[in-house]
Design a protein around this nucleic acid. Structure first.
Lengths: 219, 219
DNA sequence: GTCTATACTTGGATAGAC
DNA sequence: GTCTATCCAAGTATAGAC
């Protein structure tokens, strides 16, 4: 149908509306969510996208590159949403509130599982692992900023600032997703946030009352 | 060499000292640690054990069954060690001390990664996931007992007892392993325990001083 | 840009010799 | 009980037609 001499803009007709490369990225995300890293082959992804398997290699060179592009897409959209919520974080209670909200969203959408699957799948593949690690760094940075915003005025601040707290937060995020996915039950993870929410007033109260026992070993 | 009519006790000679079935389980553990779930095929495991690939199916029926047997073996040895350390747990400080010690051991030995790989690998395979979930239950039970022992006398007890705390503990354990493995750096995880250890005296002090803000919503 | 066809590799699993 | 040989399915990747 396309006249010769008109190179770009593929797939003018039909359903997707955007080009094949984007369709493959979207299909990779869907496939990672539904069938995991092991199930995300060139064939299954291309099938999900409704295109031929060879196009994975035409556009991305390898399956791993496509999966990384999928991770990039999810990370970008999630971090954008996180950043929007960050402005409301001024104390521990609001931090917990934001964390609970984005976690629930990520569980429902399956977006965390894309990250978790890539982390898990990288264990067999060091080269892929390096690339995944690079893409986790922004999540840790975000966690660090969020924690700092939430605990800046708290006496717990010195205990958390500039420390390994972001690392632990991301690890917990990943672990909760994997365990919830395994057991097919996210209630335990969600009730953790409810517990924290009930603890929030107590944490907020610490903002004014310094606790000597917690200080003295952080420069 | 073996006379006919003497059926059992295979592999009398040689290095391993125990039979092939056990050798395959050990090789499966080694392979899960070094090459991950994806790399743990019948061929690679059998190669590690120095036996033929067909024996995986002769003894276990499928690769998945062998991997579950490997997980069972690791779980049994680790839970035995945990239980031994549990007797010394009487307050938050000793609980933190035990947690740090066993976590460091598990990281060094790679035993956690066996669990983490199986959890991660199960995401593509619901049937396997059910079996893995069954084998995680004892870890959660252990975590629950340990937390209860450590916080029984503390005012934080009501906040933790009978709750989702064991689930969160196991999730954090898994997440820290996966992230440390991915980044090739366990220092962040270990320094988290150092932080907690410094916090321990403060937590112990809470054992006598009840905190009204934390009570009232737990039956 | 997209497809068909194909080469090559790896992996699960079984049959049958020894 | 262990091995060789083999089958079959699935996956990566490339070549070339359209």
């Amino acid at each position: 149908m396309a006249r010769p001499g008109v190179p770009s803009r593929p797939r003018a007709a039909g359903s997707a509306g955007h080009d094949t490369k984007r369709a493959l990225v979207d299909a990779a995300i869907v496939t990672l969510k539904s069938r995991g890293f092991n199930g995300a082959s060139a064939r299954t992804i291309a099938g999900e996208a409704g295109v031929n398997q060879a196009l994975v290699f035409y556009y991305f060179g390898s399956v791993a590159e496509l999966l990384l592009a999928a991770l990039d897409a999810v990370s970008a959209s999630r971090l954008e949403r996180y950043s929007a919520g960050l402005e409301a974080v001024t104390d521990p209670a609001s931090l917990i509130s934001l964390a609970a909200e984005v976690f629930r969203e990520d569980m429902s959408s399956g977006d965390i599982s894309v990250l978790a699957e890539m982390v898990a799948g990288s264990s067999s593949n060091p080269e892929l692992g390096v690339e995944v690690a690079k893409r986790i760094a922004p999540w840790k940075e975000f966690a660090g900023v969020a924690i700092e915003s939430g605990f800046a005025a708290s006496s717990l601040g010195p205990l958390l600032s500039g420390s390994e707290a972001p690392h632990v937060a991301v690890a917990l995020y990943l672990g909760l997703e994997m365990l919830s996915h395994l057991e097919g039950d996210r209630s335990a993870a969600m009730s953790m946030f409810e517990r924290l929410a009930r603890l929030a007033p107590f944490l907020n109260a610490l903002s004014a009352a310094p606790t000597p026992a917690l200080e003295g070993d952080t420069p």
